[in-house]
Nucleic acid binder design. Sequence first.
DNA 1: CTTTACAAACCGTCTAGTCGGTTTTATAAA
DNA 2: TTTATAAAACCGACTAGACGGTTTGTAAAG
Lengths: 211, 211
Amino acid sequence: MDNASRSERSRNAALDAALAIIARDGPGRLTLDAIARESGLSKGGVMHQFRTKEAVLKALLERQMVRFEEFSTPYRAKARAESENPELATEIATVREAANAPNSAALALLAAMVENPDLMALPRDSDLKTIAAIKAEATDPDLAMLRWAAARGLMLGALFGMSPLPRPERDRLFARLLDDSQWHGLEKPARSRSLKAGAPAAKGTSARKRA
Amino acid sequence: MDNASRSERSRNAALDAALAIIARDGPGRLTLDAIARESGLSKGGVMHQFRTKEAVLKALLERQMVRFEEFSTPYRAKARAESENPELATEIATVREAANAPNSAALALLAAMVENPDLMALPRDSDLKTIAAIKAEATDPDLAMLRWAAARGLMLGALFGMSPLPRPERDRLFARLLDDSQWHGLEKPARSRSLKAGAPAAKGTSARKRA
DNA sequence: CTTTACAAACCGTCTAGTCGGTTTTATAAA
DNA sequence: TTTATAAAACCGACTAGACGGTTTGTAAAG
């Protein structure tokens, strides 16, 4: 095997091992020795591929972000044709993917946060763009943000073992979040101040979307 | 000072110190020596009150849970008179509190997760009951769960520094989540299960999209 | 022959937990 | 109140091991 492939194989083995450890034992147990043990490499081998532990976390974070982009890009292409809010739909579907994948990106995020909070800047910047895109396409930006927040809440709950929602229920909730037609009842135009007390005109105000 | 008070004072000092350290330096920096330094106690004093580090985390988690119950109980009493979904309203308001409090329960949760994921069982059990109560009172349980999930998403995003939502926007979103009148447009009756006696059974098997 | 990938022993530091000893509080007999 | 004794709270030096990272050595690729 040539050197490039050999290196990549080792790097991936190390990152896979890191994910497995975080998922199984928690981010506090992620050590370089543990990575070496779990991956089958020696510690020297790991350190040859990553000069520091922080480099491992950074690489892990970047790899996971790439993977989710590989999922979201084709999804977005399809969603643009089918959905009223393709950016929101893409984000929700991607987050659903993260919730269902056993070794998700969010685990990497958690480990990064523990070790070095600065690493969070990477996903945060990407989030900023996502949020802007979601708001830009929405008739009711706040409602869009709430759908986005709900997706995140479901994912983080599942990931951290916090919310004990069974899988089928989670799937059902994600499906409802994704379905634009289920949210038209309460959209409020972007620029109007809150009309809490007034006549809400709940049912039919939604038809004037782009149809 | 009598022994009981002295002990409690020391225990609280240690837990306060732990929270401060997590908030300031991150959960990775939480060590027994750091707790001793920050609290003014000696290492031996800390170890006398808590036999292991895990015991510290457990006590911290439990204390924070109690505190949030102290917030939520009177809120629930008021909400029962004012809201259609008092359990949901209470939970959303409590989660908002956690998002805004500088030394939140969620920090303790984070530290526990890092050190020993098994400790998450404590809040998980409490969550189970909350979820059941929210569903029981809802005309549209899935929608209620989504409002609940959105609140969690907002809180966790703020906590982890993940979502860069500015404070006023977060407040606005929480307010909308809390306001029952804003969610009536899309409620769907609970699926045919005897949740509420005498509830008019939904036509057909499922929640079909509204035309 | 040079460079790259990996192995394994090793180093200094940090951390959880221990231990013998000291001070403070509790109990109660004188 | 005083004094004797025990128990609980507290201290800080110490230890064994884990940790991130380095160094030295070896085999394969180029």
